[in-house]
């Protein structure tokens, strides 16, 4: 009897300790669902690195940064208090499905694939990793104006971020690896400043 009691107490102790450890110790961050698409944060380029690559605004225009997260940075282009466009750079590591739309794209800007999304949004994929997007707001922008804005981003600097982060952030190879290789070859041909 005393023996079963001892076992019982021992078992109770072990169970309560493990439950307590799970609740009290910071195990929560190990659980899935903490990050976007369950991609570890270290594999995503921090948004701070994108800020200096945004275009310099024209006279009379104003660039106000509005969001900066892991793998994302966004700014508003304003003119006299009115928002003209949203400018954003994002790391597509957490959103692989965003790559798909570029596969069929025919148009190129400085060698990178360009896609129009609806009447007000234009996207460019740099180094198969970073997406630049310009979304017209308010009265809207013409497609040429949006493409002109995208061209004024520091695209070389952005492509260079990939090699800088490459040793840490190896991308998981997907079914579209063939398409990516050809893109990477193109990236290698681009002179890196």
């Amino acid at each position: 009897m005393a023996r079963t009691l001892r076992w019982g107490v021992g078992l109770l102790l072990v169970v309560s300790l493990s439950i307590g450890a799970f609740l009290l110790l910071p195990f929560r961050s190990w659980l899935p669902g903490g990050t976007v698409g369950d991609v570890p944060l270290s594999q995503v380029v921090n948004g701070t690195a994108f800020n200096r690559l945004f275009p310099k605004p024209d006279d009379g225009d104003q660039l106000v940064f509005t969001q900066e997260k892991r793998g994302f940075s966004e700014a508003r282009l304003k003119h006299g208090g009115q928002v003209k466009a949203l400018l954003a750079i994002s790391d597509v590591t957490t959103a692989p499905e965003a790559r798909r739309k570029f596969e069929t794209s025919q148009s190129r800007l400085q060698g990178w694939p360009l896609v129009e999304q609806g009447p007000q949004a234009t996207a460019l994929l740099v180094a198969d990793r970073f997406q630049i997007k310009v979304i017209g707001q308010g009265d809207g922008l013409e497609a040429e104006q949006r493409q002109d804005l995208i061209g004024r981003f520091n695209l070389r600097g952005l492509a260079a971020l990939k090699s800088a982060s490459a040793p840490r952030a190896s991308l998981p190879s997907g079914p579209d690896s063939a398409g990516r290789q050809s893109l990477e070859r193109r990236a290698a041909m681009e002179p890196v400043s």
């Binding site: 990050t35 609806g118 007000q120 949004a121 979304i135 707001q137 809207g140």
Partner: peptide
């Protein structure tokens, strides 16, 4: 925000927004 009422684009934005807010 998107300046477009294309249901496919709206669906994509919504799915992405839900993934972001779940993380």
């Amino acid at each position: 925000v998107l300046g477009s009422s294309d249901p496919e684009l709206i669906r994509q934005v919504r799915a992405r927004a839900d993934a972001l807010s779940r993380a």
